[in-house]
């Protein structure tokens, strides 16, 4: 009895499966000829960049169009990206594009040295020991002030002025623990100043009166809008902002300022090594460097491009910025900074 039942069941199941098969036949779609789109691995490049979109977009676009290499881009904060460089597994990305050289100095061990073919055209002072990284553009630290709210004669000229009560609470300055250019500015101030670093930091945090701009871009906006009267930023960003119509003026500190380059480097263990090298060559090519001068209002790292240089170049009094010191003392300085910032925060509260 039981077997006969199960036979019946089997018959039922086979009927069902037949129906299902028929259904599948009915619904199955016929495949026509297919075009397959795929990007071969040897035409890829993964770039992490600390540059702003205005800078990296044209460069990446031109690089792609000239070389046919597809660039995968990740943009972010300088410090966050360098953290990733140290923490990510080797091969996660190929090129670190942008960020002050003190950061590259710090991360030498994670970088693949490469000597670009046009190394002779790169100004000697920007060449790197062992070619661990390649300079990209020079970013002099400058002051800016709001033309409507500050008389030209009253504008600050020296670093020292910014440490006094005169500009207390009126200075736009980005958090050096987040912004690379801001840290460079801080180190420049410390190196220019005659007095003890601790004292300088205390005076400066006092002058900031507990206020920090959320980002380096915000510095420009705050000064332009008048919420702060003066700001510390880089020459390129300031000039670009002026071109966009901002009513601000750039001041080159008379007691000297830093003009240190940012850089580009190949990450050790890069998967797309050949493409990374092509990218480094491209960043120092005369076309890109001309763009750096003419469009980004930065200063080129090449020594053969005087014809494109901005006339303001002459106004710049540079100091011999000690990158190693800035790199070595970074933790100490930022710790002190945070402590002071905390103390002022408490005062404010």
């Amino acid at each position: 009895m039981r077997t006969s039942y199960s036979k019946k069941h089997k018959a039922g199941i086979s009927v069902l499966s037949g129906l299902t098969a028929a259904l599948l036949l009915l619904t199955g779609c016929s495949k026509s000829e297919e075009t397959v789109y795929q990007i071969p691995e040897d035409r890829k490049l993964i770039v992490y960049t600390a540059h702003k979109a205005d800078v990296y977009e044209p460069i990446i676009k031109e690089f792609e169009e000239r070389t046919g290499i597809f660039v995968e881009l990740k943009a972010g904060d300088t410090l966050a990206l360098f953290d990733e460089l140290q923490q990510d597994a080797p091969g996660t990305f190929d090129v670190m594009f942008g960020g002050g050289i003190e950061n590259f100095e710090e991360c030498r061990d994670y970088l693949e040295p490469y000597k670009v073919s046009e190394i002779d055209q790169i100004a000697e002072q920007y060449r790197t020991e062992g070619d661990a990284y390649t300079p990209f553009s020079v970013l002099p630290t400058v002051f800016i002030y709001n033309n409507k709210l500050v008389y030209p004669v009253a504008a600050p000229r020296t670093w020292e002025e910014l440490q006094t009560d005169r500009w207390k609470g009126k200075i736009a300055f980005a958090d050096p623990t987040k912004s690379g250019s801001s840290y460079t500015a801080l180190c420049t101030m410390l190196q220019v100043s005659d007095q003890d670093a601790q004292k300088t930091l205390e005076d400066f945090t006092g002058a900031l009166d507990g206020y920090l701009s959320p980002s380096s871009v915000a510095v420009l906006e705050e000064v332009n809008a008048g919420t702060r009267l003066v700001g510390i930023t880089t020459e390129g960003m300031a000039r670009q902002k002026i071109l966009e119509g901002a009513d601000i003026t750039v001041i080159y500190p008379t007691d000297g300022t830093s003009a240190i380059p940012d850089a580009t480097a190949i990450v050790k263990g890069a998967k797309h090594m050949e493409n990374a090298k092509l990218f480094l060559e491209f960043t120092v090519s005369s076309d890109v460097q001309r763009l750096v001068e003419e469009v980004f209002f930065r200063r080129t790292v090449r020594n053969d491009m005087e014809e494109y240089a901005a006339p303001e170049q002459t106004k710049l009094k540079t100091i011999d910025y000690d990158i190693h010191w800035a790199s070595q003392e970074k933790e100490k300085i930022l710790n002190t900074w945070e402590t002071l910032q905390g103390r002022t925060d408490e005062k404010v509260d």
Partner: peptide
């Protein structure tokens, strides 16, 4: 999708 290595079909 293409950058992460996927293939796409033109269908």
């Amino acid at each position: 999708e293409l950058m992460v290595g996927h293939k796409l079909l033109g269908v």
